[in-house]
């Protein structure tokens, strides 16, 4: 995935608006990974039946198919658990967006009425609140980053399982071709997820 941002011609989003666009992209990628994780689950179920038909020659393949099915469930849960963090991040970024708009209006008013002590105190109060919002968002960024890293490590384990399944497929006697085809598909899909998560890890949202 490339992190493309759709913006109106000539208008470059920045600050919280850019954060919001990055979060939207992250969320879309999470949804895609959840969908693929479900696909692995179905594929693994079919692989388990195929291994049973192949009998003793595919015992190892059967064990790995079970592990891949369990992996797909774990991956799905891990990705869904990111939803809460995404939701909270959208909330904080939205507050910051509104906060930044109001703050700029108050600053414009203060420039016109510099003598208003009450206006200055409103601006000081806003600055303190903005710092609190930013701190909260910073915690959420770190949590989200950490959860994406956990998911990435899980997918690396899934990659090892898929590659082991490819090796086990070679011992599948007359079922070897079918098993190789299935294990190749596993490997391809896990690599696809790995690529998506690697892009997520590099999201510019985490650099904010």
């Amino acid at each position: 995935m490339t992190e493309q941002l759709t913006v109106a011609a000539g208008i470059e989003p920045k600050g919280s608006a850019l954060d919001l666009l990055h979060i939207v992209r992250i969320n879309e990628e999470i949804k895609a990974v959840v969908a693929v994780a479900f696909k692995i689950n179905i594929m693994a179920l079919n692989a388990i039946f195929l291994a049973k038909r192949a009998g003793t020659a595919a015992l190892g393949f059967g064990v790995l198919s079970n592990e891949l099915r369990s992996f797909s469930g774990q991956l799905r849960e891990t990705m869904l658990s990111l939803n809460g963090l995404i939701h909270a991040s959208v909330g904080e970024v939205s507050v910051l967006l509104l906060d930044s708009r109001y703050s700029s209006i108050f600053s414009a008013a203060a420039a016109l009425v510099p003598a208003s002590a009450r206006l200055r105190s409103v601006i000081e109060r806003r600055e303190a609140r903005t710092a609190e919002y930013r701190a909260k968002l910073s915690v959420l960024r770190r949590s989200l980053r950490s959860s994406v890293e956990d998911a990435f490590r899980l997918v690396e384990l899934g990659g090892v399982l898929a590659k082991s399944a490819k090796i086990e497929a070679a011992y599948g006697a007359s079922f070897s071709v079918s098993l190789s085809q299935v294990s190749g598909e596993f490997d391809g899909i896990v690599e696809e997820i790995r690529g998506s998560l690697d892009t997520l890890r590099k999201s510019r949202f985490f650099r904010g």
Partner: peptide, 19 residues
């Protein structure tokens, strides 16, 4: 409106204590 708050606020302040 929101966008004209600075202009209205400053105009009010020339005549009257906004608080």
């Amino acid at each position: 409106g929101l966008e004209i708050f600075p202009a209205v606020f400053s105009a009010v302040a020339t005549e009257f204590d906004p608080s």
